[in-house]
C-alpha cells in the first residue's frame, strides 16, 4: 500500500526539572516509525505517558521532533511551516467543547482553517462551511449559535466539520469519543466512518478503547514508553497479541460481558518506569513476567511475523 503520511524514526525529548529541582531529559518518543496508507485507518494504543499524544502533536505539526521527520507523499513537512501541515493533517480533540473557541459562532469555528489559510473567497468559505455542517448532520439554524449552546455530540460534529474544511488527507483523532456520552459515541464513530469513502481521507485514532480499535481501525500500533512494541492488522493483533505488553493491555480492558469478573490488575500493580530514566535493554522488562537476562542486556529488535511486527525477544513463543 502506498503511504500518505510517514513518520520516520521520530524522537522527542523534553528538558524538565524533577521534583528534586535537578534538570533531566524526559524521552517522550524514542525512535517511532510508522506509515499511514491512503484511506487507511490506524489506531495507536498505549497507556497514558507512552508518548501517543506527543506523536499526535508531531503529526499535526504542533510540536517539532528532536530528530527524525514527518513526510507527506514523500515530501518532508518537518521543519517547514505549520501551514504546510494544516493543509494535509487536521485534528479532532478529546474534549469537543474545549476544542471550539467559545467566543465564536459555529460557522466561524467551522470556517477557521479556510479563514486562517485564506482559501477561497469569503463567500466560498461560508458556502463550504454550510455544506460541511449539513454533511456532519448540523442543521443550518445552528450557524450563528455559540459552542456553549451545543451538546457534546453536536460540538464534536462541529469539530469534525472544521477539520474537514481544508480537505486534508489525514485526520488525527485524539480520543475522539471518550469525553462523549455513550449514546453519542456510536454516532460520532459512524460519522467518521461515513466520511471515508467520499473524501478518501486517512484516519489516525489515538485511543485505548478496544471497541474503537476493533470497529474503526484496520491496523493497530501499540506503544510503550515512547516506542512501538507491536504493530499489525487489528484483527490479528487483537486475536493473537504477541508482545506481553499488548496481552496485558488487552486483558486489562473492561468489556460489557455479563457475569465476567474484573480483569486482573496486572498493569495497575506494576510501577510505570520514569520516562526520564528508562530501563536498560527492553523497556518493558521491569513489568514483564517473562523477563530474562537477555531482556536486561539487550533491546529487542523488531521481528516480522507475517503482517505483524513485534519488538520482543520471546515473541515467537
Amino acid at each position: 500500500m502506498n503511504s500518505v503520511l510517514e513518520v520516520e524514526n521520530v524522537t522527542r525529548s523534553f528538558a524538565v526539572r524533577g521534583q528534586d529541582g535537578k534538570p533531566k531529559q524526559v524521552q517522550a518518543l524514542r525512535g517511532v516509525t510508522l506509515a499511514v496508507g491512503a484511506n487507511e485507518s490506524v489506531g495507536i494504543a498505549g497507556e497514558s505517558g507512552c508518548g501517543k499524544s506527543t506523536l499526535a502533536k508531531i503529526m499535526l505539526g504542533l510540536d517539532t521532533p528532536t530528530s527524525g521527520e514527518v513526510r507527506m507523499d514523500g515530501a518532508v513537512l518537518t521543519g517547514g511551516s505549520t501551514r504546510a501541515f494544516a493543509r494535509e493533517v487536521q485534528p479532532i480533540f478529546q474534549d469537543p467543547l474545549g476544542s471550539l473557541n467559545p467566543r465564536r459562532t459555529v460557522e466561524q469555528n467551522v470556517r477557521l482553517p479556510l479563514d486562517a489559510m485564506r482559501i477561497g473567497t469569503p463567500k466560498e468559505r461560508a458556502a463550504r462551511a454550510l455544506d460541511l455542517m449539513s454533511k456532519v448532520g448540523l442543521p443550518e439554524r445552528y450557524r450563528h449559535t455559540y459552542p456553549s449552546q451545543l451538546s457534546g455530540g453536536q460540538a464534536q460534529r462541529v469539530a469534525i466539520a472544521r477539520a474537514l474544511t481544508p480537505q486534508p488527507r489525514v485526520l488525527v483523532c485524539d480520543e475522539p469519543t471518550s469525553a462523549l456520552d455513550t449514546s453519542v459515541q456510536a454516532q460520532i464513530l459512524n460519522l467518521l466512518l461515513a466520511m471515508r469513502p467520499e473524501t478518501g481521507i486517512s484516519l489516525v485514532f489515538i485511543t485505548h478503547d478496544l471497541i474503537v480499535l476493533e470497529r474503526m481501525c484496520e491496523r493497530v500500533v501499540v506503544m510503550y514508553l515512547g516506542e512501538v512494541v507491536e504493530t499489525g492488522p487489528t484483527t490479528e493483533v487483537l486475536a493473537t497479541p504477541r508482545h506481553p505488553y499488548t496481552r496485558m493491555l488487552w486483558r486489562s480492558s473492561l468489556t460489557p460481558d455479563p457475569g465476567a469478573e474484573l480483569p486482573p490488575a496486572e498493569l495497575g500493580n506494576a510501577i510505570t518506569p520514569d520516562p526520564a530514566n528508562i530501563p536498560s535493554g527492553c523497556a518493558f522488562r521491569t513489568r514483564c513476567r517473562h523477563a530474562t537476562d537477555l531482556c536486561n542486556a539487550e533491546a529487542p529488535a523488531p521481528q516480522q511475523f507475517g503482517n505483524v511486527t513485534v519488538a520482543c525477544h520471546y515473541a515467537a513463543a
Binding site: K57, L60, G61, L62, T82, R83, F85, A86, R87, V89, Q90, P91, F93, Q94, D95, G98, S99, L100, N101, P102, R103, R104, L112, P113, A116, M117, A159, R162, P166
Partner: peptide, 26 residues
C-alpha cells in the same frame, strides 16, 4: 494550552491571528 488554541494552530492560523482573534475575545 487549551484545545481551541491548538486547533487554531493546527488550522494554520498565524500567531497574530491566534493572539488577537482567538485569545483576545476570550
Amino acid at each position: 494550552n487549551q484545545d481551541f488554541v491548538l486547533a487554531a494552530r493546527a488550522a494554520g492560523a498565524s500567531t497574530a491571528r491566534i493572539l488577537f482573534r482567538e485569545l483576545l475575545p476570550n
